[in-house]
């Protein structure tokens, strides 16, 4: 019987799933990913989380609950820093503890610390530690990580062609980018776990696509381009996702193909409250592109978000028509 490793389909799953899944599979483990976020997962997550946490963390708890009775290990790394000199949200480094003390009767965790703040030198040690939960064969771990990295790099390259993680996660994914009739790009900003979780984001990507818009995110842009742009900020952005979001924003401001920018944030997110503010100022000061802010929380009523998306699309179309000197309505 292979060891069953559970990976919650939440938080950084959308960023690293190709790496994590293939790594554990190469090691010979059976990987079980939790169900897609649904009402039950949110309900159960909200019930089992400290009440001051943000929705993505509550959703993560829900996914852990979904996995807890059917795996040997749950992969909940303690992530402190992913890039040299940068941090991510502090909730990530307390995540294993938060879960340990909120949820009873859970399987063992793979809670290796991931901290590349000083340098990536400890990458090898980190990988070995994670791998040691499954096998003691160091060569096998090394080989598995190489294969997984290759998969991950391929995955990132595919995204640079315009694909989004939730396209690739579809069961019937064929490797084609859905092409809407009109080639208008809308830049969707926000933490990956907000924008790619279609239940939480109330299908914002599909909704925009139905309006004939092409949705692009930070992931569709090469890292070098993002970093180059982020360097032009007067002060270093020390949050990894903040750097990506700001770099992408600065790039989009100069891209004529981008006809609108949407920032999707979760209510109560400390990082978003700062980053969204900077993004909005940058967009407003150095471009005339439409900008909208969408806030998410536990509510399931979609009317609010639909109205905002509809009005945003109307505004884009209205401007286009105006530029073409057509009707002034819509």
């Amino acid at each position: 019987m292979p060891i069953k490793v559970g990976i919650p389909r939440a938080l950084l799953f959308y960023e690293y799933y190709s790496l994590w899944i293939s790594f554990f599979e190469e090691l010979g483990a059976e990987v079980i990913v939790s169900e897609k976020t649904n009402k039950e997962i949110i309900d159960i997550g909200v019930k089992n989380t400290v009440d001051e946490a943000c929705l993505p963390v509550k959703v993560f708890h829900g996914h852990v609950m979904d996995l807890k009775n059917r795996v040997d290990y749950i992969f909940i790394p303690r992530i402190i820093s992913l890039t040299e000199g940068e941090y991510i949200c502090p909730k990530f480094c307390g995540l294993p503890e938060m879960i340990k003390y909120s949820i009873k009767d859970i399987p063992k965790f793979i809670d290796t610390t991931i901290n590349f703040r000083k340098s990536k030198k400890n990458l090898n040690r980190t990988v070995m530690e994670i791998g040691s939960y499954i096998t003691q064969d160091k060569k096998k771990i090394k080989r598995a990580f190489e294969i997984a990295t290759e998969k991950y790099n391929n995955h990132r390259m595919l995204m640079e062609t315009g694909l989004l993680p939730n396209d690739m996660l579809k069961k019937d994914f064929l490797g084609e980018v859905p092409q809407p009739s009109k080639k208008d790009k809308v830049l969707l900003l926000g933490h990956p776990y907000n924008i790619y979780d279609s239940y939480m984001s109330m299908e914002v990507i599909d909704k925009l696509r139905k309006h004939g818009l092409r949705v692009v995110t930070c992931d569709n842009l090469e890292t070098d381009v993002i970093d180059e742009k982020a360097k032009t900020l007067n002060k270093k952005m020390f949050w990894s996702f903040g750097r990506k979001i700001l770099g992408t924003t600065l790039h989009a401001i100069e891209d004529d193909g981008v006809c609108g920018i949407i920032y999707m944030a979760c209510f109560g997110c400390g990082l978003d409250s700062v980053i969204a503010e900077i993004v909005e100022r940058k967009v407003r000061r150095s471009s005339d592109k439409p900008f909208a802010m969408l806030s998410l929380d536990e509510h399931t009523g979609e009317a609010g978000i639909n109205t905002r998306i509809e009005a945003f699309v109307d505004m884009i179309r209205w401007r286009e028509d105006h530029e073409d000197n057509l009707s002034t309505y819509r």
Partner: peptide
């Protein structure tokens, strides 16, 4: 501006 909706904002949650 010039008879078209140029920007809007709505209250958040």
């Amino acid at each position: 501006r010039d008879g078209i909706v140029y920007d809007f904002a709505m209250n958040t949650v």
